[in-house]
């Protein structure tokens, strides 16, 4: 059985080089590719042409959800479902509801942010097609690792490797599926 190509990998160690490499791969029209870095590099996402994350909207929904839960819960239990006079205080007032409104808004935002982050990053995914490649593992240590997937329309085993080499990547090689 033939080994199916997974993609091309290249290593870059200089941060300025990886920035310009990102811009050039983007301008060459590649879509299914990525750069794995040990830490967030400022502006690299822009250089790659990554679209703005929708996470802020997800978080906002969480905030609204938390706030409405808090208001609804306090109003419904106190002023609707079981009206109980406690020290002559109001059954529902926005003033006394503030602490819980605030806390549940924060909690809703946090949960939606984390769940949204996991969803957008597709984690947990305990498998990656490149995971057995030695270059790929360096991405959590000290190397910027560029991966260009074989599914990309512009992918060609030789042409893509040449592009990466031209951009200053080292140890450029084809990763294949051993299965």
């Amino acid at each position: 059985m033939n080994a199916a190509p997974v993609g091309i990998i290249g290593e870059i160690t200089d941060v300025n080089k990886v920035m310009s490499a990102a811009e050039q791969i983007r301008d060459a029209g590649y879509r299914q590719w990525d750069i794995h870095t040990p830490y967030p590099v400022h502006g690299l996402d822009k250089a790659m042409g990554v679209k703005r994350s929708i996470l802020t909207y997800i978080s906002f929904v969480g905030m609204v959800g938390g706030l409405s839960t808090a208001l609804g819960l306090q109003w419904w239990t106190g002023a609707f479902d079981y009206i109980l006079n406690i020290g002559g205080k109001g059954f529902f007032n926005w003033q006394f509801s503030m602490p819980i409104d605030f806390e549940l808004s924060i909690l809703g935002t946090a949960i939606f942010t984390v769940v949204g982050l996991f969803g957008l990053c597709r984690i947990p995914t305990w498998y990656n097609r490149y995971q057995d490649d030695d270059s790929f593992k360096k991405a959590t240590d000290d190397v910027f690792v560029i991966t260009i997937d074989a599914e990309d329309d512009r992918f060609s085993a030789e042409g893509t490797q040449d592009l990466l080499k031209r951009l200053g990547a080292q140890n450029v090689h084809l990763v294949t599926n051993h299965a």
Partner: peptide, 15 residues
């Protein structure tokens, strides 16, 4: 959780 350091992920992560 299978974190790879992908820049596409860092983008969401930083936000």
């Amino acid at each position: 959780l299978g974190w790879t350091g992908s820049t596409r992920h860092w983008h969401h992560y930083e936000i």
